[in-house]
Amino acid sequence: MQRKVRDNKAWFLVLPVFILVAFSAIVPIMTVVNYSVQDIFDQNTAYFVGAEWYREMLRNPALLDSLGRQFFFSFSVLAIEVPLGIAIALVMPTKGRMAAVSLILVAIPLLIPWNVVGTIWQIFSRADIGLFGYAVNALGIDYNYTSDPTAAWLTVLLMDVWHWTPLIALLCYSGLRAIPEAFYQAARIDRASKWAIFRHIQLPRLKSVLVIGVLLRFMDSFMIYTEPFVLTGGGPGNSTTFLSQALTQMAIGQFDIGPAAAFSLIYYLIVLLVCYAFFTAINQLDKAK
């Protein structure tokens, strides 16, 4: 009975997308691949070096350091922003005028351009004139992000939490609103505690938005550039130099195009790999149930 459609029209319809993707993604990536296997002196002088740059990059202590920092930073971000975002979503009012007011308040950090976020925190955290920096010092804690690596690192983390927790909160807020009232009513009648309601009704139903939230936050924080660049410039020392900044320094600061290209591709593969691993893990978890 089955008759196959022998019509190739459909391919023509997706052709424009192919062309677009080719120009926007494949061509640039191939250019980078091309750079990564050559030693480039100037426009006309380049030698093929094979995997040399890759080997060198994987041994480069500065890069390995920033890679380690990067992972630590990204996981810290997730560990703080996800629970905090859920908590904020849970306490946000759901009805009346306060619901709208709280939505706007929570959304504000998301509306500020990234470099402005950096500038705000740069001033905000200054020990001499910044409200936050001054207050912390007034409490007797020695805090100066321009000289103390730990303080600088914590400041970047704090800034990211301030900037991006609202995203998780808003995603969860919309997820919570989608839970029918009957579930809460049934849980009350079953005498479920607040924790049990969270554990058995809210959390299971937030899973799909949390997957999106965690993926977004991981990729974004893994590629963080603007805010620490504006806030600390990667310092003091290299304490807040994350991968993308190290890469930029190498490519644009030192014009080491070949090694930088190799490094970009390694970077790119790591992001893909982590996202893939994460996604698979979640799917497996789903099936196991």
């Binding site: 029918p180 009350r188 058995h200 149930k289």
Partner: peptide
């Protein structure tokens, strides 16, 4: 007296079960 202390149970129009359990 709130619902949880009224010794009643309710079955809703759309089934309410705890999915993950």
């Amino acid at each position: 007296i709130p619902p949880e202390e009224r010794n009643i149970a309710q079955v809703f129009q759309f089934p309410v079960v705890y999915d993950s359990m």
